[in-house]
Structure formats: C-alpha cells, structure tokens
C-alpha cells in the first residue's frame, strides 16, 4: 500500500456563504466517513488561515522567527487528507470524490516509500 497526500487548495479571501459552506462540510464529512469505512483513511485536518502561520528560518547561524505564511499566493493549503491506496488510480478515485465535495482543486501526491533500515 502506498500513502497519498490529498491537499485542498483554497482561494484567498472570505469563505463561501453559510448555506454553501454547510453543504460542503456535509459532503466532505460523507467522503471522510466513506474513506474510513473503506479502510483507506489515515488522517485528515483543516487548517487555520495563512495569517495564523509562523515561519522559522535559519539565517547566518541563527534561527529567526517570522510572521506569515512561507509562500504568498492566490491560493493556500486549506486542509489535507492522507489515505492509503494500492496505486495512483485508486488514490485519484478518492481524490475525485474529495474534489467534488470541497468544490476546490485537490492535489494528489505520493509519499516517499519508507526505506528499510
């Protein structure tokens, strides 16, 4: 089994109005529950907005603390789900369901294989 990170990209700006958001939350909960039933779900979480982020960066031998997200853009990582799947096609099938539920772009990316020690 391989692990895949399903990242959800949010556009910057305010969230959609409550009725829209409520439906999205219900749909996402359903996908999550289906993932758990299928035994593919590993972990998932939604993130607070990028304005709450803090960046630590080493510079001239010193570790400095910065306010703000690492990268500024028009979109940001809003949340993610980690699943286990036999191959990319299986992972993409779950990714598709998630993308339809959140109505936002979803990036499917494999984890590196853990090297045998």
């Amino acid at each position: 089994m391989k692990r895949y990170l399903l990242s959800i990209f949010h556009p910057d700006g305010p969230p959609p109005p409550a009725p829209v958001l409520d439906k999205i939350m219900r749909d996402v909960a359903q996908v999550r529950s289906d993932m758990q039933t299928a035994g593919v779900w590993v972990f998932a979480g939604g993130l607070c907005p990028p304005s709450t982020a803090t960046v630590l960066r080493q510079r001239d031998g010193q570790l400095l603390t910065f306010d703000g997200p690492f990268a500024e853009g028009k979109e940001h990582l809003g949340g993610f789900t980690i699943i286990e799947a036999p191959d990319l096609d299986a992972a993409l099938a779950w990714g598709r369901r998630l993308a339809l539920a959140v109505t936002l772009p979803v990036e499917v990316r494999p984890f590196q294989d853990e090297r045998p020690s």
Binding site: K2, P86, D87, L88, D89, A91, V108, R109, P110, Q112
Partner: peptide, 8 residues
C-alpha cells in the same frame, strides 16, 4: 514509479 501509476 513514485506515484504508483498502475500497470494494468
């Protein structure tokens, strides 16, 4: 290889 695109 890394994303495990299946051979099927």
């Amino acid at each position: 290889r890394d994303a495990a695109i299946p051979y099927r």
